[in-house]
Design a binder for these strands. Structure first.
Length: 574
RNA sequence: GAGCCUAUAGCUCAGUUGGAUAGAGCAUUAGAUUGCGGAUCUAAAGGUCGGAGGUUCGAGUCCUCUUAGGCUCGCCA
């Protein structure tokens, strides 16, 4: 239970006890936060008791007020209209929360291991083109889920399922075969996955003039499945290029996986399951020999599970992969981070698993995220109308670098580059995580990424600033006496926000939602910067200085934990 | 045509189980620095929460209808 939870549930207890003094009943006590910090730290709305107690809200408030004010955690309470607003005792909270943060360090707000196993699949790119902005959203989201689940005590395994097989892969292979002239990344001085992507675009262009190419691509897939040695060799070569290029991108982004799986190893899975379902009468066979499931009983539609020639399709593989994944990991939760355009597919997949009688079907969850749109419309990789992940990082790096060049004359070129890279990545990651996951987002290249305001670099700036403060003025064993310290509103706003951190972490984890954490971190930084700006730390007494330094140290610690959960590396200097 | 999703300030977005005067950032305007980092801080201006009904003490939030946009509906992945 978090510190804040303890305080809130104590207050709930006090209030329901007080209400029971008026009339015995079961009361549900709601605790909220007032719209304005000046109004108090907690607010109790009293509308819902009026009918039971036959009293007006402010009359109830006055009775409760007298009962609860004796409690040591409460400094005072104020009746305001139909609300009872509570001011907490700042000194005792400061003592306990700061002590908690400083003693636990990086483990502050970390939850105990709960022995629940989770499998998380994310990224899962196709090997026919480089990673683009849409993958970036997927990657940072996946990394965030991975971080926060582990921080909250789960045992998590992350998987990248590489889609290295299929007609779309054959398309770039075919274009290379026809027009490649033996080009290599070395000969073209190109990142290897970009070279592969060029041929995917080339295919799309050529296909417009030559519809026969599609037949050839299909033929190539058949050759691939028949283990045709030339085709397999070409596939291995181009796949190798695609994957090694992507791994560079992952490395630069700081995205890691516990395991890579390859669809080329999985594509035969699932057939047995479908045939088993057929024999149990759960599926049906059409006259042309194809096998279908009818999910209309759960509001979905009919869906083919095996082609008439007996080969498997996308959903067949996914059924098999899901079953295998369950058998291997025996986890209690399976999360798939996949774009919202596949909502229907996952509904069908999970419904079919359930129809097959797999009890674990209910533990599968599609974490659906919205598409990334550009001002010109949807990204289309076939037309080359994409924002490429590598280019985007280069662009951001350049912007950050020129900022740093202007500000810092006296640091080495190496350090400038290091900082520019971290600033660029923090901008990108924070930006992408600062949206509601399920919503589509609009990415305007010139305007979207900025370093001012509600951004990653703003948070980085705050951590750098605090770091510089405490390295100059001390961080260890700062003695202070807070017993009769009068915390002002600026100081308290920071302390109170620190108190909320653990709850935000738990909520972000439960809701698989990054925006709650980004909002929190930004708010904490903002409160700190205001406090820092208006409250000189050095010019006051030793005691004041030490109290304020401790607020600063605790803030830095919480910001660092929060940034790391978002997959952003905190900076000591920028 | 059917299913799902979205609509909040000029732009990009937050808004908890329904609660107080609907909030940020950017852009705009006006300010702040003898201290500890100005990638900072303060303030102004900016809204019929797509529209219409309904539920109730109370609706951006829930229900119905409606308008606009997006995604999906393949024996592609």
């Amino acid at each position: 239970m978090s510190k804040r939870d303890e305080i809130v549930s104590n207050i709930k207890g006090l209030i329901s006890k007080s209400l029971n003094n008026i009339a015995k009943n079961e009361y549900e006590v709601v605790v909220e936060v007032p719209p304005n910090p000046d109004m108090g730290d907690l607010a109790i709305p009293l509308f819902s008791y009026t009918n039971i107690l036959k009293m007006k809200p402010f009359e109830i408030a006055n009775i409760i007020k007298n009962d609860i004010e004796k409690d040591p955690t409460i400094y005072e309470s104020v009746v305001k209209g139909p609300y009872l607003n509570i001011f907490l005792d700042r000194n005792s909270i400061f003592d306990s929360i700061v002590e908690d943060i400083l003693s636990k360090g990086d483990n502050f707000a970390k939850q105990k291991t709960n022995n629940i196993k989770v499998v998380l699949e994310f990224s899962s790119p196709n090997t026919n083109k480089p990673l683009h902005l849409g993958h970036c959203r997927n990657n940072v989201l996946g990394a965030f889920i991975s971080n926060i689940y582990r921080f909250c005590g789960y045992t998590l395994t992350s998987i990248n399922l590489i889609n290295d097989r299929g007609i779309h892969i054959c398309k770039s292979m075919l274009a290379y075969k026809l027009f490649g002239n033996g080009a290599t990344p070395e000969s073209e001085h190109k990142k290897s996955d970009h070279l592969v992507g060029d041929f995917y675009v080339k295919y799309a262009i050529e296909e417009k003039n030559n519809p026969d190419l599609e037949k050839q691509a299909k033929g190539m897939l058949v050759d691939w499945e028949n283990n045709d040695s030339d085709t397999i060799e070409l596939w291995k070569k181009m796949n190798g290029w695609a994957i090694s290029g992507m791994k560079e991108t992952y490395k630069r982004m700081g995205i890691e996986f516990d395991s890579f799986e390859y669809e080329s190893n999985n594509y035969l899975l699932g057939k047995d399951i479908v045939l088993d379902g057929l024999s149990r009468g759960l599926f049906f066979r059409e006259a042309d020999n194809s096998v279908w499931v009818d999910n209309s009983d759960v509001g979905l539609d009919k869906k083919a599970l095996l082609r008439s020639d007996g080969t498997s399709i996308y959903i067949t593989q996914d059924l098999g992969t899901a079953k295998k994944r369950h058998d291997v990991y025996n986890a209690s939760r399976f999360i798939y981070v996949v774009g919202s355009e596949q909502n229907y597919h996952f509904d069908t997949l999970f419904a079919t698993l359930k129809k097959l009688g797999y009890s674990w079907a209910d533990s599968c969850f599609h974490l659906s995220y919205g598409m990334v749109n550009l001002p010109e419309g949807k990204m289309k990789s076939r037309e080359g109308k994409v924002i490429d992940a590598d280019n985007l990082m280069d662009l951001l790096f350049g912007l950050a670098k020129s900022e740093i060049d202007e500000r810092n004359k006296d640091i080495s070129e190496d350090e400038k580059n290091y900082i520019a890279e971290k600033v660029a990545l923090s901008a990108l990651k924070f930006y992408l995580l600062n949206f509601s996951t399920s919503k589509d987002i609009m990415f305007i290249p010139e305007k979207s990424i900025s370093f001012d305001g509600n951004t990653g670099p703003y948070i980085q700036y705050t951590t750098s600033r605090i770091n510089s403060l405490i390295t100059k003025y001390g961080s260890n064993s700062l003695k202070f006496d807070s017993s009769d310290y009068k915390f002002n509103q600026d100081e308290w706003n920071v302390i109170y926000q620190l108190l909320n951190f653990e709850d935000v972490v738990l909520k972000s984890c439960d809701n698989l939602s990054s925006v709650e954490l980004t909002t929190y971190i930004y708010e904490l930084s903002k409160r700190f910067n205001k406090f820092y700006h208006d409250n000189p730390i050095l010019s006051e007494s030793e005691n004041i200085k030490n109290v304020r330094l401790n607020i600063s140290i605790a803030t830095l610690q919480v910001l660092k934990i929060g940034l790391r959960l978002l997959g952003i590396e905190p900076l000591d200097r920028m």
